[in-house]
């Protein structure tokens, strides 16, 4: 078992299935995602079949099943961004990085997430990469933005 998972489970010594979601949240908080191993350990700890743990975890959008990339891209799909073309932006990122939402590129560099409104409607359509906001994104500017992170990684 993973050390972090074990440390967290120790805190939930006599817990039952009511604690499933808090435990999953805590593990993801530290690890950034939930692996098969981690979910299996949680199931054993709570005496729950892992199919049930997986069922609950996949029900909620907050849980990730792949590690985040070095650069985590959040695409805003709120109303204002939608009106100004965030659907196209999302499609372009998926096409460019060859990943789907909630996935990570094979080289581990980029991961992709949809978020609802992030409160910067004046900048729509907006994406957020590791806390940096990129405003009024277009399909052209998008390629440059992503490439700039690739360069940053190489340096």
């Amino acid at each position: 078992m993973n050390d972090t998972t074990e440390q967290i489970l120790v805190k939930y010594k006599n817990a039952d299935r009511d604690s499933l979601i808090p435990i999953l949240q805590e593990i993801q908080e530290v690890e950034g995602w939930l692996s098969e191993k981690m979910l299996t350990s949680v199931g054993r700890h709570l005496d729950m079949p892992v199919s049930k743990v997986y069922g609950v975890a996949t029900f909620y959008n907050q849980f990730r099943f792949q590690p985040k990339g070095r650069f985590h891209i959040q695409v805003c799909r709120g109303t204002a961004c939608h009106v100004l073309g965030s659907a196209t932006v999302l499609e372009e990122i998926k096409k460019h990085l060859k990943i789907d939402v909630d996935e990570t590129t094979k080289d581990g560099l980029f991961s992709l997430e949809i978020v609802a409104c992030i409160g910067t409607c004046g900048l729509a359509p907006v994406i957020n990469i590791n806390g940096n906001f990129h405003a009024r994104v277009t399909t052209d500017s998008l390629r440059d933005i992503i490439e700039s992170y690739r360069v940053q990684n190489n340096n």
């Binding site: 098969e36 079949p49 199919s51 049930k52 743990v53 997986y54 069922g55 996949t58 029900f59």
Partner: peptide, 28 residues
């Protein structure tokens, strides 16, 4: 008392699946 399948995901994407959507052969 086996529980090798359960609902996973949600809404229109809900499916009955084994843990991690693996094949039945590796499930319990």
């Amino acid at each position: 008392g086996v529980a090798c399948i359960d609902f996973s995901k949600r809404g229109s994407r809900t499916v009955v699946s084994t843990a991690f959507d693996k094949g039945m052969n590796t499930s319990s």
